[in-house]
Each structure stands twice: as structure tokens, then as C-alpha cells.
């Protein structure tokens, strides 16, 4: 009896280690190293360094510690502050428009309509065109006098506005182009989300007498929540960081009315105010994190609760 009990673990010991060890070391931790080195040197180090450099007056030659002066300047100079507020307007406007339009287009392009394939590709195509190319094209199209948009409106007797020359309109015109270019991704994500909803739900609702409106609000909208999460987060991350489209279309003008943090960072960098530029980067970092992280957590929580 005792010999039996004693002999068993020793037999296990002899068998197990050679069997287990190879499988575990088949997933070596050093596989993290190549990506880790790049990430550390070119992403993590600059990000942490930015926290220090944002507190300095930094020129090509030397750095001087000046405390929070850069941030004070950032929030007291109207031209810099305008970029800060514009970032929120631009981010939320483009993101909201992409969610609404993407969902509507998604529903429309999964319904039984003619020319569906063509419509899907044509909506998606602008996603692939370079942002600079789109920016230049629309800058020409939105020209107040020669532009195709205003001459098209003139055919209907409408005098089009100065899309990019009117200070109160420029940012919204760029946001419009951003939506034009980016709505394809949102639509695509919603199409995938809608296709994953079991058709039985719609049939059951129809049997119970739900009309199209009710089916949309009670079935489609709640069940495409994962798609909504993806669209909101992706478009917010992109919209808050926006730079290249704005730079190609107005360079933040007229004046600084269409500046966002992204373009302020570039302008200060060009002007040689590296510390101020980096402070802008830190502000952007805080803004993006403060908006994205709570939204991501909120969406995840709602998902778990269901």
C-alpha cells in the first residue's frame, strides 16, 4: 500500500517535465524583443521625454527648464487656445457624423436595392485616396468663385458661401470633407455589424407587427453596438489627431480659425519653438486619453451588462 502511493508521484515526475517544458518554451518571451525595442526607442521614450521637454524652452542648441510656462502660454494665447477648442469641435463633429451617416448608409446598403455592389464600392473608394490629394481637390472644388460646388449651386440660383475663406465656416467645410473621405470605413464596419444580426429577429418582429422604424430602433441600433463602439473610437482617435487634411486645405486659416492642436504642433515646430510644440503634444495626449479611455470603458461596461 505505502509503496504504491510512494511510487506514483515519482513516476509522474519522471514523465511530466520532458513533456511539458518544450511546449512552454515554444512560445519564447524573446519574441517580444524586436517589436519591444522599436516600441521602446521610437514610441515610449519620446512619449515620456515629451513630459519633460514640454516644461522647457527648447531650441536647436539647448534646453532651459521653465516649469509650466509653455502650458500657460498655450491656454492664454487666443490663437493657440482656438486650436484647442477646435480640436473638440472637429473630433466630435466628424465622429458623430460618421456614426449617423455610416449607420444609415449601412442599413441602406444591406437592404434590397438595385446597384448595391456599385454603391458600396463607390462609398468606400475615397478611403483609399491620399488625404493630401483629397484636400487639394476639395480646396479647388470649394473655391468661392471658380469652384465647382459654388458654380453648381449657382445653377439653382443659390449663392454658395466662401467654404474655406469664411472664418466661421472653414473648420466645418474641412470637417465635411473629412466625413466625405472617412464615411466609407464607418459604412463598411456597420455593414459587417448588420450582417451579423440573425434575420430571425427581424422576422419575429415583423410577425409581431413592428414597423420599419421600430425594427431599426429596437433591433438594429442595439445589436450593432460593437460596430458603433469601433466606429466611435476609430473616428475619434483619428479626428482628435487630425492634421494632414486641415494642413492641405487651409493650413489652419483664414487667420487661425481652422487650427487644431495637430496643426499648432506643426506650426510651433516650424517656428522653432520645440518646447511649446511638445507642450501641444502633451495637451493632445491628455485630450485624446481623457476622451477615448472613458468612452471605451463605458462602451465595454454596457456590453457586459447586456
Amino acid at each position: 500500500m505505502t509503496t504504491l502511493v510512494a511510487s506514483r508521484p515519482s513516476a509522474d515526475d519522471a514523465l511530466k517535465p520532458p513533456k511539458r517544458r518544450p511546449i512552454k518554451s515554444s512560445y519564447p518571451t524573446w519574441f517580444y524583443i524586436p517589436a519591444g525595442v522599436f516600441y521602446l526607442v521610437l514610441f515610449a521614450v519620446p512619449t515620456f521625454a515629451s513630459l519633460y521637454f514640454s516644461l522647457t524652452r527648447w531650441t536647436l542648441f539647448d534646453t532651459e527648464f521653465i516649469g509650466l510656462d509653455n502650458f500657460v502660454q498655450f491656454f492664454s494665447e487666443p490663437m493657440l487656445l482656438r486650436g484647442f477648442t477646435n480640436t473638440f469641435i472637429y473630433g466630435f463633429l466628424t465622429s458623430g457624423a460618421k456614426v449617423v451617416l455610416g449607420l444609415l448608409l449601412g442599413v441602406f446598403l444591406t437592404s434590397q436595392i438595385a446597384a448595391r455592389g456599385y454603391l458600396r464600392s463607390v462609398v468606400f473608394f475615397p478611403v483609399l485616396v491620399s488625404t493630401i490629394g483629397v484636400g487639394i481637390t476639395f480646396k479647388v472644388l470649394m473655391d468661392p468663385f471658380d469652384g465647382l460646388i459654388n458654380s453648381g449651386l449657382a445653377l439653382f440660383g443659390i449663392t454658395g458661401p466662401g467654404w474655406l475663406t469664411d472664418p466661421s465656416l472653414a473648420l466645418f467645410s474641412i470637417a465635411l470633407v473629412d466625413v466625405w473621405k472617412g464615411v466609407g470605413i464607418a459604412t463598411l464596419i456597420y455593414i459587417a455589424g448588420i450582417a451579423a444580426i440573425p434575420p430571425e429577429y427581424y422576422e419575429a418582429a415583423r410577425v409581431d407587427g413592428a414597423n420599419g422604424w421600430q425594427r431599426f430602433w429596437r433591433i438594429t441600433v442595439p445589436l450593432v453596438r460593437p460596430a458603433t463602439t469601433t466606429v466611435v473610437l476609430l473616428s475619434l482617435i483619428g479626428g482628435l489627431r487630425a492634421f494632414d487634411l486641415i494642413w492641405a486645405m487651409t493650413r489652419g486659416g483664414p487667420g487661425f480659425t481652422s487650427d487644431v492642436i495637430g496643426s499648432v504642433i506643426y506650426k510651433q515646430y516650424q517656428a522653432g519653438f520645440y518646447g511649446l510644440s511638445t507642450a501641444g503634444n502633451v495637451v493632445l495626449f491628455v485630450v485624446v486619453t481623457a476622451i477615448i479611455v472613458p468612452i471605451a470603458i463605458w462602451f465595454n461596461k454596457r456590453e457586459v451588462e447586456r
Binding site: 516600441y39 521614450v45 521625454a49 485624446v288
Partner: peptide, 11 residues
Amino acid sequence: GLIVPPAVVPT
């Protein structure tokens, strides 16, 4: 890495 905007000048 997905969310944080890269810090330009320090990079």
C-alpha cells in the same frame, strides 16, 4: 500605441 498620439519633436 493605438491611442496615444506620437510626440513629434522628442521623436
